[in-house]
Design a protein around this nucleic acid. Sequence first.
DNA 1: CAAAATCTGAGGTACGTAAATCGAAAATAA
DNA 2: TTATTTTCGATTTACGTACCTCAGATTTTG
Lengths: 341, 341
Amino acid sequence: MRPTVHDVAEAAGVSLATVDRVLNRRAGVRSATVAKVEAAISRLGYVRDMSAANLAKQRIYRLVFIIPDGPNSFMRRLESELEQVKLRSALNRTDITVLKVPAFDGAALARALESIDSKMISGVAVVATESPMVREALARLHRENVHVVTLVSDAPAFKRGDYVGVDNVAAGRTAATLMGRFVGRRPGKIALVAGSMLVRDHVERRMGFEQVIAAEFPNLTCLPVIEGRDDDATAREAVAACLTGEPEIVGIYNMGAGNRGLIDVLSADPAHAELTVIAHELSDHSRRALRDGLFDAVINQDAGHEVRSAVRILQARIDGTAVIDGQESIRIEIYLRDNLP
Amino acid sequence: MRPTVHDVAEAAGVSLATVDRVLNRRAGVRSATVAKVEAAISRLGYVRDMSAANLAKQRIYRLVFIIPDGPNSFMRRLESELEQVKLRSALNRTDITVLKVPAFDGAALARALESIDSKMISGVAVVATESPMVREALARLHRENVHVVTLVSDAPAFKRGDYVGVDNVAAGRTAATLMGRFVGRRPGKIALVAGSMLVRDHVERRMGFEQVIAAEFPNLTCLPVIEGRDDDATAREAVAACLTGEPEIVGIYNMGAGNRGLIDVLSADPAHAELTVIAHELSDHSRRALRDGLFDAVINQDAGHEVRSAVRILQARIDGTAVIDGQESIRIEIYLRDNLP
DNA sequence: CAAAATCTGAGGTACGTAAATCGAAAATAA
DNA sequence: TTATTTTCGATTTACGTACCTCAGATTTTG
């Protein structure tokens, strides 16, 4: 039978109330007594029964997720995964509120952050846009003991929270290595497609990609970035124009949204099957493109994993317990036609 | 505030005891009354408070993990991840026992399975070796309501449990696609290295690999399998002998253990840097080999994920609750030097 | 219709912890 | 020393569910 607080109290020669004060870091216990209790705890191997503790505490983890509105498909996937988590969240005494703010709008994000009542909310997960106002709003939350994790795109200037997401520079490097190795030794040009170069993650992916191409694949050169603006139609036209204008293109790296537009262009002309195409984000469309040979590889980060990880980390921070690093690190996933989940 | 059993009782116009009988599927309630209660439950959106239920139930999930003994590094990684999980398992009212049995020994595994007391144990996770005795032992557990998951290597003949692991045929196909694309169009031979061809997963990886090479990369031919026997020294000598004997080798696929021996051979001669090498299992050694350019890609399955997933699935089966498919599917991970976690 | 079987209600205890009160004891300061 | 603050004990209530008993109500069976 597992030891209980009663056993600890008895073993330490103190009362239940004192054990409780020590366990919950309440004031009014001499350090000598704290040591006695802690000795008893480790001697007995006592671990708090979380079921009972949560029950008694009537604690509800009130979390807020703030994600950008708009067509970006990864954000929409995050949103739908959040819905899944919300369905199960009642079981964990967790209440999740999702706030959507206009994309690329630092002021709107800052307002959303400022609207958070630190009396009510104990954790916030946010897809951060960098701006001084946002930084200050995050700092305020930190001052008022609201735990923060940044999602998807790190906010390096804000050091007080956890980051849940991938290293986008490394993701770009990964795409470049695949591109270089898949293309082989023949010379050629690579077309780069981005959602919008305002977003930090796309900038980082591009940086990593171009670094590796320049350093390791001198036979390849990167063309200027085509901006698809997270929009399929725009991406389609821009890519089509680029392909006709540049006959020497041997590969395409789509580092953002707009996969559907790209797929349209590729499937329009069988000659495009020769191209090596690497894209981001596993969706129904990109899966089909992989299977049909239009795409050669897809780089992905698991939105569901990201959401669940953010929730677990926030809960752990609120409880003051440890996080399992291996479980919470988000992987840069590579999918070929053969290892689709 | 979340509704409780009391609210359900009131809403259904029955007593607490009746609600309890319905919730816990106890006998002695007319079907009309059951319907009334269930209607009230769904009307109020009642969900059982697991913290309270577990506390009251005094339930302990008693799980047994059976894994092969021996030098296989993936099994050792499973074991160490199990230790990690055990440390945290007290928090979840979960008690995990790890049994190690001789590798490749169906009889020993069957004995271990037979030793499981279905009165005490409610879930078993096993790295299955196929044999009639094992199958019968698994069937007995199923008859006696012990939930079973098979780990790492599926046991297709046993359909009553969940499988936690990757599709090894697909893993082999993935390796082959990478190999074919990395090598390019030049002709050559591929050396295949396996731990021991007795193990099902290696057989499957080889099958997938050879399928894809034969179908899609006619410039490549696969040499007969070199058996490394899960042993670094054996692998080293066998690979070295093969490389000197076959000058036309352009790639090596190591589908099992023995990475250290392979790395030794590769680092011995700078000329081997030309080889395209794809291996399984991310370890300290294979990471370094990736970074040093000795390996070109590593296929991996996450041992920690696998263990945690097995535990969650067993708990869900015992509780009769749902599992989150996306969370429990084990991915065929591809690592290049750029996306190492 | 009566007896038997089945169903339901009321109420209790238990699980392990949190959190509170209030007075007693001990330590520290004056 | 006395006064004051700090530390500690004893006890109680509450959280939501599980599980038990026993009596009373209802239905089914003979």
